[in-house]
């Protein structure tokens, strides 16, 4: 015991502990992560729900209650629907990690199969928005021009003209939509995660959501066309002003220094 505590202060001790921790995490992850093989046939609905319930009681029940009824640490999940589960767990926001103004996107903790099982379980608690099928959110099926108009009316006030995100009150923010899967964008509109309001099908029908996704696909991906060149983040005049000062005026002053400088004298060379 004494020996161990003495060695705890060894410079390499931290490294050893870190290696152990990494090995343990990796091993645990390998053990827990599902086998890549696809299930031969679709599990029946009830198996999905049972599996989902198991996952729920391990990973979610501590905050959301043993039956998803909610607790002081997390809201009730009755009636949030499978779309909410798919969005929250699929974007890694759930299970939540740290406290802060808002829960942030991170690498997802569950496989898509597990997410589907969790979603099936939550959907069984009460009716709610259903996770969309791929033909509902495929950008190819939407009209980008109509989507642009809808986006500017309903979305750009928080997410910026081309979905780059923006500030909300008290440190909260609307995240960037670049790199977000079309399905998750669709689900966010359906369910209104965290402080985002929802845009249900009753006020924004499915086709319009698809139009918005088509618009974002046109203007906010790596393939988007930027005719004028480097976009400076598409944040508007602030980065433009910084660029004009640093690269514009900076370059010109450097040139001015060359123009005004004395030519090297023969003596020095």
């Amino acid at each position: 015991m004494k020996k161990l505590s003495a060695r705890r202060r060894h410079p390499l001790a931290a490294l050893v502990v870190l290696l152990f921790a990494l090995a343990a995490t990796g091993g645990l992850y390998a053990a827990l992560s599902p086998a890549p093989k696809a299930q031969a046939d679709e599990s029946s609905q009830s198996t999905q729900i049972t599996e989902g319930q198991k996952l729920f009681s391990v990973g979610c029940a501590s905050c959301h209650g043993t039956h998803g009824q909610g607790s002081s640490d997390g809201p009730s999940l009755v009636g949030v629907g499978s779309a909410a589960v798919d969005f929250q767990v699929g974007t890694g926001r759930m299970p939540a990690q740290q406290a802060g103004p808002q829960i942030q996107k991170k690498p997802k903790q569950y496989s898509q199969d597990e997410i589907d099982q969790l979603a099936a379980y939550i959907a069984s608690l009460g009716p709610g928005p259903i996770a969309p099928a791929s033909n509902q959110y495929d950008p190819a099926g939407g009209d980008a021009a109509k989507g642009g108009e809808l986006f500017r009316t309903n979305c750009s006030q928080c997410h910026n003209f081309v979905g780059k995100g923006g500030a909300l009150t008290d440190g909260k923010y609307a995240p960037t939509l670049k790199g977000v899967e079309p399905k998750h964008i669709y689900e966010a509109m359906q369910t209104g995660p965290q402080n985002m309001p929802s845009f249900p099908d009753t006020t924004m029908p499915q086709q319009q959501k698809q139009d918005i996704i088509a618009y974002l696909h046109e203007v906010d991906t790596a393939q988007s066309k930027n005719p004028g060149g480097f976009t400076l983040g598409s944040f508007g005049p602030v980065p433009e002003g910084l660029f004009a000062y640093i690269f514009g005026l900076g370059t010109l002053i450097a040139i001015a220094a060359w123009v005004a400088a004395r030519t090297t004298k023969a003596k020095k060379s």
Binding site: G148, R152, F161, P227, G228, G236, P237
Partner: peptide
């Protein structure tokens, strides 16, 4: 470098807006 890419902003309508309006 792009400056003032008006095509991404859309035409003006008094009931529309974007965040980061500077």
């Amino acid at each position: 470098a792009t400056i003032n890419p008006i095509w991404t902003m859309g035409p003006y309508r008094p009931d529309q807006v974007s965040t980061g309006a500077q």
